[in-house]
Design a protein around this nucleic acid. Structure first.
Lengths: 194, 194
DNA sequence: CATTTTATACTGACCGGTCAATTTATTTTG
DNA sequence: CAAAATAAATTGACCGGTCAGTATAAAATG
């Protein structure tokens, strides 16, 4: 029963994500979400307090899922350099996935100023990203392959570079450039780490 | 006469900018713009085709103004290093200005996917930014203070770092961190250039 | 049959855009 | 130059439409 409710919740969140991907955060209506989830409008209001509640939970779900996948992909590697490579490969997963995720993520970012819950969720996401950066840097220092003065600052820089690269790629809207930006991002981070 | 019309147009654009700063792109109404401009609701539609037209022109105005100021600030300097410093100082001009501009800019970025005019305007802005980067890099190569393999790629990286840093700073919403992110961004770019 | 879940109908608020009416500025005319 | 005529600019009420949220009805469940 509770499982079925959880399934419905996920179904609605996925529908909201799909709707946001195609229509953009602000113009998604409750009807859109219901349509994508193949249910009626009443269902969304039954499982969620309101529209804002849907998107808050969606934002939380997306960011934690992203972090988990990133963390998983670096834990499979042994050396710092391999971990960094796996991290960037995971971040630049594919044009389609990056487009879907980053479009919605950008929508959320542009809403952070109006919504303290979003701000908090994003802060948590940042902290998770920085912790990945720190882990890679520290291991690289132990292996003596990186030369970094301030670990914290460098971890922050790495995420700036990643987000900046993905956003610029997204804005240029050219799938062919995906690989170019992945390499550019990777090489820049390598320089920052040396 | 045409001058007076131009003045009104600017007045409405400024009002739209102010409204977008405080309420966010999507939730700005024609009434908001009229209120901030201290005119009645009909005026906006008298000087602009529609709401979307207002924002297209606003986006164009903002991005070209930003580029001009950045270009002006580096042209005042002689050496590559001084130019880079002036560039970053200009980009991180002040917490207040950065907040106002980047909030609205982020709103626009999140709309690029739905609006080809926005995409084009932003593309032009990027090209301007890259040209600033190229100029600094090339001079640094001549002065032999930088060591760069691919000028184009490095110019792109520089802007990724700048935008990534400013967005991350903006999301953390802490004026005290403004100087920290300015330094972090500057130092990372220096590493990328060496 | 009682409770939970889903579907449908409805309401009130809001918004973009229109437009007739009014005010203000400019030009024409005697 | 002053009065009349014309044009430009401004106003705000209004309309068609949309949407979030609610209320209520219907169906499924156990």
């Amino acid at each position: 029963m509770a499982q079925k409710a959880e399934k419905r919740r996920k179904q609605i969140l996925k529908a909201a994500f799909q709707a946001a991907t195609e229509k953009g955060y602000e113009s998604v209506t409750l009807q859109d979400i219901a349509d994508y989830a193949d249910v009626s409008k009443g269902v969304t209001n039954y499982y969620f307090k309101n529209k804002s509640d849907v998107f808050t939970q969606l934002f939380e779900w997306i960011t934690s899922r992203i972090y988990e996948k990133e963390a998983a992909s670096i834990s499979e590697q042994e050396t710092a350099l391999k971990k960094l490579e796996a991290y960037i490969d995971r971040v630049f997963i594919s044009p389609e996935e990056n487009k879907n995720f980053y479009r919605v993520y950008l929508d959320f970012l542009s809403q952070v100023k109006n919504n303290d819950s979003y701000k908090e969720i994003n802060q948590k996401f940042y902290e998770n990203c920085w912790s990945i950066g720190r882990e890679i840097i520290q291991q690289g220092l132990e292996e003596e392959v990186f030369e970094v003065e301030d670990v914290e600052q460098t971890a922050i820089s790495i995420r700036c570079m990643i987000d900046g690269s993905l956003i610029q790629w997204l804005m240029r809207d050219d799938d062919q450039l995906h690989d170019y930006y992945r390499r550019t991002c990777y090489e820049s981070i390598l320089k920052i780490l040396s």
